[in-house]
């Protein structure tokens, strides 16, 4: 079998994953896209292992490890997403803008992105109340 088939398939899957990571709003969908990217890498590992006929089976062993790590990652990732959802009432990635530089006094204009962060605060408190109600 041509090596180009699995290699091209892996590349396209990987790019699909990139698109999902960058474009999806829900954090869990982002995690799914991450899984796609990991699987693309796995496919590459297996294909090259088979092509090279590696006596150590390094590609397959690494694939197993990647799968394990992916499982661990998905567990931790989901825990984090749940925690964020519990604290902020939302798991939308583009609303978690705590990394933004808040508008400085006087230098930032009204169109400053920090304003978005400010608007985020009432939503967070509302989310808290929602979480309390859920509990």
């Amino acid at each position: 079998m041509h090596l180009a088939y699995p290699a091209v398939l892996a590349a396209l899957l990987f790019c699909t994953g990139i698109y999902g990571v960058l474009a999806r709003r829900n954090a869990i969908l982002v995690l799914m896209s991450v899984e796609l990217m990991l699987n693309a890498v796995n496919l590459n590992l297996v294909a090259f292992d088979v092509w090279l006929r590696d006596t150590l089976h390094a590609g397959q062993a690494l694939t197993l490890f990647t799968i394990t790590i992916a499982a661990a990652e998905i567990g931790l990732g989901l825990a984090i997403v749940l925690l964020v959802y519990r604290n902020r009432g939302s798991s939308d990635i583009d609303r978690l803008t705590a990394l933004a530089d808040p508008a400085g006094p006087g230098t930032g204009g009204p169109a400053d992105p920090g304003a978005g962060a400010d608007q985020d605060e009432p939503g967070a408190t509302a989310g808290d109340e929602k979480a309390e109600a859920t509990a």
Partner: peptide
């Protein structure tokens, strides 16, 4: 890899 062949 266009000329690479995997011997299955």
């Amino acid at each position: 890899f266009r000329a690479t062949w995997i011997n299955l």
